[in-house]
C-alpha cells in the first residue's frame, strides 16, 4: 500500500482533509431524524404511486382483475359465517353476521399490512440496491396499499351492515377517525416488522402464527363476552389489545347492539389514539435507526 496515495498532489492534503474541504460526506451516512422526515415528505408522490402500482400488480394475472378487491373480503366473510354462524351457531350475539364481518375486515387490514410489511424490504432488494430513496417509503406504501384494500372492504361491510337492518346514524362518521387511527398504528407496526424482517428472514415463517394468536385474542370470531371468564389481569390485558380496541370502535360506531368488552367509549378512543401514537412514532424511529443497513449484505 503506497502511503503517497493518501496525499493529493495538487494541494498536499490527505484524502480526509480534501473531502472535508470540499464538503464531501461519508457515503451511506444516515440523515438526522428531522432531515429524514423531510425527505420522506418529499417522496410522498412516490409512496402513493408505488402503493397504487402494487395494488394493480397484485391482480394483474387474475381474469377478474380489480374485482377481487371486493370479492376476496366477501368470500372470506361467507366462509367464516358458514362456520361460526351456521355450523357452530352462536345465537347470543344480535346481528352476528355484521358483528363478525366488522371484526374480520378490521383485523384483516392489520394482518395483511403486517404480513406484507415483513417482506417490504426483502422483496424490494433490487430497487433498494439500485436507487437511493428513503427506505421508509416502502413499508409506508405497503400500509397504503392495504388501506386502499380496506376501503374496498368497507364498502362491502357497509352493504352487509345495511342489509342486516342496522340503521344509518350520524355516529357512522366516527368510522373515519377510527380507521385513520388504525392506519397510523399499522404504519408503525409495519415499519417495525419491516426492519426486523430485513435482518431475520425467518420472521416470515413465524408471522402467520403470531397473527393468528393475535386474532383469537381480539374477539373477531366469537363474542367478546367470553373474555370475561378469564382472570382479572388477563381481561385487562385483552382490553388494552390494540386490535380489540379498533374492532370495538368500529362495532360501536356501526352496530346498535354489539356486545363490547370495553364499557367506556372514552377509554376506547384514548387507548386507540395512544396505541397509534406509540406505534407510529416508535416504529418510525426504530426503522430510521436501521436506514443505512437495508439492502446490504
Amino acid at each position: 500500500m503506497a502511503t503517497t496515495a493518501l496525499v493529493d498532489p495538487e494541494t498536499g492534503l490527505t484524502q480526509a482533509q480534501l473531502a472535508a474541504r470540499h464538503g464531501l460526506r461519508v457515503a451511506g451516512e444516515r440523515p438526522s431524524l428531522a432531515e429524514y422526515s423531510r425527505r420522506l415528505w418529499a417522496y410522498r408522490h412516490f409512496i402513493a404511486a408505488y402503493a397504487n402500482a402494487k395494488l394493480v400488480a397484485s391482480y394483474s394475472n387474475a381474469k377478474l382483475g380489480q374485482l377481487w378487491q371486493v370479492l376476496t373480503p366477501l368470500t372470506n366473510a361467507a366462509v367464516y359465517y358458514l362456520i361460526f354462524g351456521v355450523v357452530l351457531a352462536q345465537n347470543s350475539i344480535p346481528n352476528f353476521i355484521a358483528y363478525l364481518t366488522t371484526g374480520l375486515f378490521i383485523f384483516n387490514f392489520t394482518q395483511s399490512a403486517v404480513l406484507a410489511g415483513t417482506q417490504s424490504i426483502s422483496s424490494n432488494l433490487g430497487m433498494i440496491r439500485a436507487l437511493h430513496f428513503p427506505r421508509a417509503t416502502l413499508p409506508l406504501s405497503t400500509t397504503m396499499t392495504q388501506f386502499q384494500q380496506l376501503l374496498a372492504s368497507m364498502v362491502v361491510l357497509i352493504g352487509i351492515v345495511l342489509a342486516t337492518g342496522e340503521p344509518i346514524t350520524l355516529e357512522w362518521l366516527l368510522l373515519v377517525p377510527a380507521l385513520l387511527l388504525q392506519a397510523v398504528f399499522n404504519a408503525g407496526v409495519v415499519l417495525l416488522v419491516a426492519r426486523m424482517g430485513a435482518k431475520a428472514s425467518d420472521l416470515k415463517q413465524v408471522m402467520p402464527f403470531i397473527l393468528r394468536t393475535w386474532m383469537y385474542g381480539s374477539g373477531v370470531l366469537y363474542s367478546v363476552s367470553l373474555f370475561d371468564r378469564l382472570p382479572g389481569w388477563a381481561t385487562t390485558l385483552v382490553q388494552f389489545n390494540p386490535m380489540l380496541v379498533y374492532i370495538e370502535l368500529a362495532r360501536y360506531v356501526l352496530l346498535e347492539q354489539a356486545p363490547l368488552l370495553n364499557e367506556s367509549l372514552t377509554q376506547l378512543w384514548l387507548v386507540g389514539a395512544g396505541w397509534a401514537l406509540v406505534a407510529g412514532i416508535g416504529g418510525f424511529i426504530y426503522f430510521w435507526r436501521g436506514e443505512q443497513e437495508y439492502g446490504r449484505g
Binding site: Q15, A16, A19, H22, G23, L24, R25, V26, A27, H132
Partner: peptide, 8 residues
C-alpha cells in the same frame, strides 16, 4: 472511509 458529493 469513502466520502462522496451528493448521493451517487
Amino acid at each position: 472511509a469513502i466520502y462522496t458529493q451528493g448521493q451517487p
